[in-house]
Design a binder for these strands. Structure first.
Lengths: 235, 235
DNA sequence: AGGAATTTGTGCGTATGTATC
DNA sequence: AGATACATACGCACAAATTCC
């Protein structure tokens, strides 16, 4: 049946469904047709479709309810991942905004060079605020293979929105390391702490579903104003 | 066939397999019989067994290799939630051990008093090490409603094993807040840093499935020796 | 090196159970 | 109570990866 060395059909199906949902062709909350009808329309067996649906559900884009139906959830996997890792004000919460200082195409630093196929990467420098209060200084590296040029104006406050919609980059896994370190030499004057001052730092590495390294970042934050929070489980 | 409202067969199978592996009846690295043979012996269809095996694999206790076999992985029962949040040595990893300093039944501190129905709680003080290197000082509060008395000897290195097996306490969600703070006045002499010295801290609150607060803890760690790591997604 | 045997992966179709409406 | 829809389970055929001769 299957032609030589194509991706498994259930994978093709789940990716097609994910594209449909991500592109907005399927509204949030919409109910999919019954599995049998859907399988007939797509020309696959019900079991195959069910495996694909299970895949989409695992990525957080679908709710499957026995006896009821399959419901689209417009909550991209990236958000569900990143929602658990974030900086908040000491009192909790805070509306996040960001000011991009610069975007450059440079040779990757040592820590990131081993990852990815290219020797150059895009470096994004940002100042981050919560409720207008400056709380962090951030250096982000993206693999240059993603795009030739990235302009400052391309970047919105939500980098992950940019990754997903502009670069087609879907983050599947993330690892953060948190510690204490001195602020770097290049700390801009705009930041209220000066180079050398002790600050909390977050070192983040993230990967795509195919385990390709996608992003490397280092964030220095003022621990007197913000805390790093990670949540797990049904909050 | 199936009696009213029994667990699905594939769940029963996967739990049985997990028990077998956890109990040590199946050696680490051992290869299971071919799926067809196994299914015949167990009196189930191959597809049903495969679903159970996929379940065990998802829990990290089995490696499935096409064309080769299913191999047991003796992963010391690490609670899947806590595996994501942990302290590691700067170079990565480290075997965790702990020394319990004291266990007391006391009135809860302000931060914890609001949570839970009782006004008293158990306070556990621990020193934590990685590969024998002292890296953290920990204060843990449990709701006193769980048990009248907790003895030092009751506590193993893995508190979560103790929670689950001795208290019947199953943690469903966790929230960690990480920042920088001075070590408390009661820092014991055994700790290599002295009271007042700056250290990283982790404030953890955890809840049961019914959203009852279960645990509150504060951990001071030496950021020159260890980092806090959180992972998300398929690592 | 190469080919056959073994073993897991994919896919299909169907019957029955169970939750929802 | 009946209809609808997803969940479980079975058995079979073939593909793909590994192992062994």
């Amino acid at each position: 049946m299957a032609r030589t060395s194509a991706l498994p059909k259930f994978i093709q199906l789940s990716e097609m469904l994910i594209r449909e949902i991500a592109a907005g062709h399927l509204a949030d909350g919409a109910r999919l047709p019954p599995e049998r009808d859907m399988a007939d329309d797509l020309g696959v067996a019900v079991g195959t479709l069910r495996k694909a649906l299970a895949d989409v559900e695992a990525k957080g884009l679908l709710d499957r309810v026995q006896g009821s139906g399959n419901y689209v959830r417009h909550r991209p996997a990236v958000d569900s991942v990143y929602a658990f890792f974030r900086l908040e004000l000491l009192k909790g919460g805070g509306l996040p905004t960001a000011e991009v200082l610069s975007v450059d195409r440079l040779a990757k630093p040592d820590g990131f060079a081993r990852l990815g196929g290219h020797d150059k990467g895009h470096r994004i420098m940002r100042l981050r605020s919560l409720d207008g209060v400056l709380i962090a200084l951030e250096e982000i590296w993206l693999d240059a293979g993603q795009r030739e040029q990235v302009a400052v104006s391309d970047l919105s406050d939500s980098l992950y929105h940019f990754y997903r919609h502009e670069l087609g980059l879907v983050i599947a896994s993330v690892e953060d390391r948190i510690g204490i370190d001195a602020l770097p030499e290049w700390t801009p004057d705009a930041f209220h702490l000066k180079a050398g001052a002790a600050a909390g730092y977050i070192e983040r590495v993230s990967w795509t579903a195919t385990k390709e390294p996608a992003e490397f970042s280092r964030t220095w934050y003022d621990a007197t104003r913000a805390t790093y929070i990670s949540r797990m489980g049904k909050g």
